[in-house]
Amino acid sequence: MIERDQVLHVARLARLRLSEEEVETMVGELSGILEHVDRIGSLDLEGVEPTSHVVALENVLRADEPRPSLPRDVALASAPEPQDGAFRAPSPQAE
């Protein structure tokens, strides 16, 4: 079971502001997910590899060759407050 406090904690880590109603919904949904995982955990999984990926691929790599980067004005185009060629962000200390 997920407690209300845990939902608020995770929401804070993800910088999400949840309404009272959303908190209630999340408590239910996250608890449901955990129950599902518990059900898997109750199976006999001796000798079954954990599934981190569902595609049967490995070593998908690229050569170390430079590709053109974005022009800076394009890179900064969606920044709300560019300054001196940089992305301006609220200071993390200010939180």
Binding site: E81, D84, A86, F87, R88, A89, P90, S91, A94
Partner: peptide
């Protein structure tokens, strides 16, 4: 007084 500092980010 509060919270007006900012960070310039270079990627």
């Amino acid at each position: 007084i509060h919270g007006s500092g900012a960070s310039l980010v270079d990627f």
